[in-house]
């Protein structure tokens, strides 16, 4: 095993365990903190994929913005939601299953890919910011624009929801 592989396995375990902790803890703040650790782990995996730009963006967006927004939401929701009880009929096993299904599948794909690049001598070429920009505005122009449309729709939806719930009061 090379040094790189050991580090990779450590990062992977960290990501997996913190993802599990996110799903299993009953305290909102602990869930959030372990979610942040998960995001860090994922950005570490991106570095293994030779994509430093995406790794940094992962930290910047998910740790810097999304998790902060979640804190904001927790703050607005008030203290009653801090210790949520799981709905009845949800046993520990089903919790673990839900927590595992998606990550395990994604991880199989991920791990195969990364381990493959670790083993072979052929290194992945470094993905630069320029490459990503080119891909967005050239090859994947349509999906990129569609995503922005999706975001606009969801923003309008959120505003409408907020407006109507206010009107009912």
């Amino acid at each position: 095993m090379t040094f790189g592989e050991i580090v990779f396995i450590l990062i992977m375990l960290l990501t997996l365990f913190s993802a599990l902790a996110t799903a299993l803890t009953s305290s909102m703040i602990y869930a959030l903190l372990s979610l942040i650790v998960t995001m860090f782990g994922i950005s570490g995996l991106y570095i293994f994929l030779n994509a430093p730009f995406i790794a940094m963006m992962q930290i910047l967006i998910y740790v810097g913005a999304i998790s902060v927004l979640i804190v904001f939401a927790v703050m607005i929701a008030g203290p009653h939601y801090l210790h949520m009880k799981a709905p009845k009929g949800w046993t520990g096993l089903s919790k673990i299953l839900t927590a595992l299904i998606v990550p395990v599948f994604t991880f199989f794909v991920f791990v195969n890919f990364i381990m493959g690049t670790c083993r072979t001598d052929k290194k992945l070429s470094v993905i630069t910011t320029k490459d990503i920009g080119r891909a967005f505005f050239d090859t994947y122009m349509l999906p990129f624009e569609l995503i922005s449309l999706l975001i606009v729709v969801s923003i309008i939806g959120a505003i409408m929801l907020a407006l109507f719930s206010k009107g009912e009061k």
């Binding site: 903190l33 963006m57 910047l60 810097g64 998790s67």
Partner: peptide, 18 residues
């Protein structure tokens, strides 16, 4: 000298809020 230097600074400075 990292080719995403400025992003490194701001990505990690978001940790201070955390």
């Amino acid at each position: 000298d990292i080719n995403v230097g400025i992003l490194v600074i701001f990505a990690f400075s978001s940790l201070s809020v955390l």
